[in-house]
């Protein structure tokens, strides 16, 4: 079950994980992009966590939309924009709810991913964050349908995100600056997918701690 407290705790957990992984993200992005991924993720999620902590709102959807706006404004990278678009679409779907089930959350997450794919004109297999998020979404839905507990389903999602991220090593970049060096991209793990993996690992860890 997801409510305002769990949304706030989740964003705070992601913020801490991004801060811990800033060097890894910077390194991955410097090899293919312009190197601002680590700082951009840290800045964006820490601002979002800070804003949400003092934002008195019980509506899960409105909280997510607020998170999207702050992330968009404080994380000036393409990945910041992409995540903010996804979170916005998920938030819109959950607007009016003060709590939601795992299935409802999985549906909202799916709408977020659809928005990302439409707007960024990308699909799985193109060496992007989608290669971590889509497997996570599939695992999440499957686990939710089986009626697993929140911490079990997030564990499954984190595992799927991590495996998906690993697979980006054998993919060729076709989006963004990384695409200019497409032929050199094989063997490198995608920075965006790594951020996706960090997000789900943080969510999984935070749900275990919450028990």
């Amino acid at each position: 079950m997801i409510d305002a407290t769990s949304v706030k705790n989740s964003i705070s957990a992601i913020s801490k994980a991004m801060a811990l992984n800033i060097d890894l993200l910077t390194k991955l992005d410097s090899e293919a992009g312009d190197g601002d991924l680590g700082i951009s993720m840290k800045q964006g999620f820490s601002a979002a966590a800070e804003t949400l902590a003092s934002f008195e709102e019980e509506d899960v959807g409105k909280l997510l939309m607020k998170c999207s706006a702050v992330l968009n404004e404080t994380s000036p990278s393409t990945l910041g924009t992409i995540l903010s678009m996804g979170i916005f679409a998920s938030g819109k779907a959950l607007k009016g709810k003060t709590e939601c089930s795992a299935i409802e959350a999985a549906d909202a997450f799916d709408l977020g991913l659809q928005a990302i794919m439409k707007r960024s004109k990308s699909k799985p297999g193109e060496k992007t964050i989608l290669d971590a998020l889509i497997p996570a979404q599939n695992a999440l839905r499957e686990a939710a349908l089986l009626g697993l507990s929140d911490s079990e389903l997030l564990k499954a999602a984190a595992k799927a995100a991590s495996e998906g991220c690993e697979k980006t090593k054998s993919m060729v970049s076709i989006h963004g600056r990384a695409a200019y060096y497409a032929s050199n991209s094989i063997g490198r793990q995608d920075g965006g997918a790594t951020a996706g993996k960090i997000i789900f690992e943080a969510l999984s860890k935070s749900s275990r701690e919450a028990i």
Binding site: D34, D36, A69, N72, E73, P76, S77, T78, T81, S84
Partner: peptide, 8 residues
């Protein structure tokens, strides 16, 4: 070299 935010 970075996009402005949608909010701006």
């Amino acid at each position: 070299f970075a996009s402005p935010s949608a909010q701006v």
